[in-house]
Design a protein around this nucleic acid. Structure first.
Lengths: 163, 163
DNA sequence: TATTGTTATACTCTATAACTATA
DNA sequence: TATAGTTATAGAGTATAACAATA
């Protein structure tokens, strides 16, 4: 229904009569609004950092999930990433092209693949984890460690709730 | 560079061997990850609520900004929404089609329009504000009022920081 | 020459339908 | 018949270039 990756260009400095810094007064009381602004900022930061590796944030997430669940099927990966199976095909193709992961026919059910990290993928993922953690810190530099922990706690509580 | 509106379908219940609820272990320690999951949830909730009015979240945001800054130019609106001028054209066209806002040639600079809410737009926006506030509460039902306030504070602090 | 709004266009992300091969 | 993976395709959302009118 609604996307996942894309994200708008950050607002640029205005030389106009209207100060863009205060244009969103009134909106700042909406959780949905500030959540989106904050997410855009953090996501874009990570996205830029990952460019070096020709990776998108969703592909990093996929590597994390494959590492945690070696041998899982594409269908499960798609569900975990909240994407449709056709998107998972493209994503796994990309990971294979980069030599980071691979499909292995290893299940009793011969229709499905098991997904595994390659040796290179394992090493690369280690590097990516450090990069992602650093990107988190950099893009949330306005917060101290305690505030970051608090924010993490609240967000986890929010999104986990499935009611 | 990267988008704003779109958002992936929510993960569906799995009947597989892998429990999707715990597939993202390890990822939950990344602020970027939980931020995105939380944002998707809240955004999608609002998006669904706004369907009734044939509006997208960005269009609601635009109405809020026009109300707060009557007579502003499209270029300023685009900057505030972090979208490109061509997107602002389509967005304002839609608001005009719905009879909620209008372009008025009222500036000394005859190239630009001033953007204003219509009477209908003002009334409608009142309704939309209540809807958005309720959507915020519903989609963050896992949090109590104090936690919501805390989350709002932290997110505001995070995204406002421009360093 | 620069800027506002606009059109045209392309690229990305996403969703659906339909196909294949297994089950 | 149902499911895993795939292909093809269409639709959003977004970005860039180029144009007209005005400055």
């Amino acid at each position: 229904m609604i996307n996942t990756e894309a994200m708008a260009k950050p607002p640029e400095q205005s030389n106009q009569s209207v100060d863009p810094a205060i244009l969103d007064q009134g909106l700042e009381s909406y959780l949905g609004y500030v959540l989106r602004r904050a997410q855009m900022k953090v996501f874009q930061h990570l996205s830029t950092r990952l460019d070096t590796f020709e990776l998108r944030p969703a592909q990093f997430t996929a590597l994390m999930i494959i590492e945690q669940h070696p041998g899982l099927m594409q269908a499960d990966l798609a569900r975990a990433l909240a994407i449709e199976p056709p998107q998972a095909v493209v994503l796994v193709n990309k990971l294979e092209q980069l030599g980071l992961a691979m499909r292995v026919r290893c299940k009793p059910d011969k229709r499905s693949y098991g997904l595994f990290l390659s040796k290179v993928g394992e090493v690369r993922l280690k590097e990516l984890k450090a990069l992602a953690a650093q990107s988190d810190r950099d893009s949330t530099a306005a917060l101290d460690d305690q505030e970051r922990a608090q924010l993490l706690h609240l967000l986890r509580k929010l999104y986990r709730d499935t009611q």
